[in-house]
Design a protein around this nucleic acid. Structure first.
Lengths: 219, 219
DNA sequence: GCACCTTTCGTACTTAGTACGGCAACGGTA
DNA sequence: TACCGTTGCCGTACTAAGTACGAAAGGTGC
């Protein structure tokens, strides 16, 4: 008589990985605030309590998606020119963090790194050591590089616009508030530079990255 | 007959500022997750709905405390040596962000800067311009400096320990997980450097800051 | 004493995390 | 085939949190 209903495997079956993937998708679409167990279940086409079979709680999901983000970043190789390798991984990291900008805020509150995160850190340390950096110098360089990458990502995320040009419209509206003359340097920056057309904050990344890489050397 | 009760102004009377101060205190004590309207009301000694007379909603509180954090950072002066001034404000910013580490994650999601935030940005831009940096170079330098400061603060916040020495115990526990030999460079870093005693990640800040300031120059 | 404004609060609705136990499908074993 | 344990999913329901709505409580000027 066939009880009807989706008895058959029309749905690919849940798994911890599918849960995390869906969580990333939901967060990408609606920010971390839009990620709830219910919205996640909806994305997966199941009922809320179903996800709890695969993860212990929401915390574990948050830890999991942060680690997922790290897994997306290209690892540097210990062979090859260290500056080139570290530049590539820095640019990769920035791209990934721009796509999943909710991850930055999340990192501040997660203190238990996952396997991809550890692998990532280990690879960067390995590249620096192979380049001849002392252990101490490696620590310095690593803290500096990652600070720059994460901080740049934060700033990019907190800009009220995105990509080239869109700056102008938004900031012009904001500038109206500045008519008071209270923030002359911000007005100057906007009118003479960022609002000149074609400005993309993302391009600022290279300047700092180059300055930092040039300033570092094995010693 | 005196109806009793706290009719008299035993409580100093609420205000938007008192609400924000209390919100900062609650967040400092229990993280941003511990900040709820109810916990905030409790801190203030009032009932939850009372705070809504002074702020429109929780979002406004979040915007408000981020701006409060910026107001705590020392502004650089446009007179005086620019490197000295920018170093002082960078160190001030780091101290403030360490005390209120929840602010970092919040910045990623807030896109409407408050007055203290604008004043802060304006002052830094002014210092760079006064030092002879072109508008374009000012933009580069500013993005670089703030990226470093924010990123460093994020890393400091996401460390599973705090202050000198406490590193060792924690990381030893973690190291057990590394027995696999899968993360040799992290193990090396820990055993040969960070766990040697007296290590304080906070000291890494100076290295990068100096490298960056030395790498910059008006041009 | 009265009208009115300011400030605080009581009630209650909505959304979100999740404990607990039920139940169907599946696989192995007697 | 009949039984049974395991796996995976879900229904119900409780708790915490944001907040709409409107009332109460105190102060102020006439």
């Amino acid at each position: 008589m066939e009880k009807s209903g989706p008895t058959r495997r029309e749905r690919p079956k849940l798994s911890r990985d599918r849960v995390l993937e869906a969580a990333v998708a939901v967060a990408d679409a609606g920010g971390i605030g839009g990620l709830t167990i219910r919205s996640l279940a909806q994305e997966l086409g199941v009922k809320p309590m179903s996800v709890y079979y695969h993860v212990a709680n929401k915390e574990e999901i948050l830890d999991g998606i942060v680690d997922y983000v790290f897994s997306q970043i290209d690892l540097p190789s210990a062979d090859g020119d260290w500056r080139t390798e570290l530049r590539k991984r820095a640019e990769s990291a920035r791209r990934v963090l721009r796509r999943h900008s909710w991850a930055i805020g999340l990192m501040e509150s997660r203190t238990s790194p996952g396997p991809a995160t550890l692998r990532h850190h280990n690879a960067v340390l390995g590249t620096l050591r192979a380049a001849g950096f002392s252990v101490e110098m490696t620590a310095h360089a690593y803290a500096l590089l990652d600070s720059y990458i994460y901080g740049f990502a934060i700033q990019e995320a907190s800009l009220p616009f995105e990509g080239p040009d869109s700056v102008a419209q938004v900031s012009e509206a904001i500038m109206a508030r500045f008519a008071s003359g209270e923030y002359p340097h911000m007005v100057e920056m906007a009118t003479e530079y960022t609002n000149q057309g074609g400005y993309d904050f993302g391009n600022e990344f290279e300047f700092g990255l180059t300055l930092i890489l040039d300033g570092l050397s094995p010693a």
